[in-house]
Design a protein around this nucleic acid. Structure first.
Lengths: 148, 148
DNA sequence: TACTTTTTGCAAGCGACTTGCATTAATATT
DNA sequence: AATATTAATGCAAGTCGCTTGCAAAAAGTA
């Protein structure tokens, strides 16, 4: 794909570099690789999956974790804990806000773009989902900490 | 408290034992201790916190984890991943459905009993919370797996 | 280009959680 | 109620996702 259309690839590179700069991160090979991977493929992916998807020996496991944590900090990436014991990461596209539903048995992950509990659960039941549970967690800075 | 009102304590014991039986779990000392702790105090608590709250040497770390996982399986307890790297556990009281908000900085956890995104975020802003993010995860059995 | 700062790779380390196994306790059976 | 059977517990060792210290390399800066 990059070979077939080098112009477009260069544009994408520029976008990725721009995002990194915007967030105050220096532009390095691993950071570009990881971020463009996450922007191209729709996760959520575990760190291990990301490492496997990168070109062989292009970057170390430790670097993957370090980059992902930095991306989360600057809100380029969202974390979720769909599976116990393992974080999943996904590019945070503000224009495509969505949530995940993971099958308790086969662990298949799907996304949906709606955001209202009752509506969601009814819709999912009609789709054939059973035994639906949800978890909503909110992260914020409290009044006290916002002052300090 | 148990000493002051032994009758009420016995009643509570019976409730806890009843819940365990209802869920097909045998009634053991550690299970009774952990479940009644979670029913009495409102978490969410980490496994470590639970272990510390139990009477000294009343049960092993491994047992705490084993019990908690069983409780989650039978839906007596809910898990949340408010902090990366550490699960939190809480008694699943169907009459007091609620969610959690954790401060990004001081990690203070509060619960709220409302359940509508926009309403929630507006209300929290008025309460002084800033930089609000939320995470909603849904767990269910998909059509395929429900068949099998 | 030379200097300073940050990032990376590697390997060792950490910590939450799990597991194998012998012992002990809970349920089922008689 | 006593015994047999099955399951749960404690202990210690192990696993695994993730982090970190440090020297080398690459980015940013002048």
């Amino acid at each position: 794909m990059g070979i077939l259309n080098p112009k477009k690839e260069l544009e994408k590179e520029a976008i990725v570099a721009g995002l990194l700069k915007e967030k105050g991160l220096s532009i390095t090979a691993p950071r570009k690789l990881i971020l463009s991977l996450l922007m191209k493929e729709h996760g959520p992916f575990s760190a291990e999956e990301i490492l496997k998807k990168l070109p062989k020996n292009s970057c170390d496991q430790a670097t993957v974790y370090r980059c992902l944590n930095q991306f989360v900090e600057v809100q380029l990436v969202n974390t979720s804990f769909l599976e116990k014991d393992m974080a999943h990461f996904e590019y945070n596209d503000p224009h495509h806000h969505h949530h995940h539903i993971i099958c308790k048995i086969c662990k298949k992950i799907e996304s949906f773009h709606d955001c209202l509990m009752e509506k969601i659960e009814l819709g999912l039941q009609k789709k054939g989902y059973r035994d639906i549970q949800h978890r909503l967690e909110i992260f914020a800075v409290c009044e006290n900490c916002a002052k300090g």
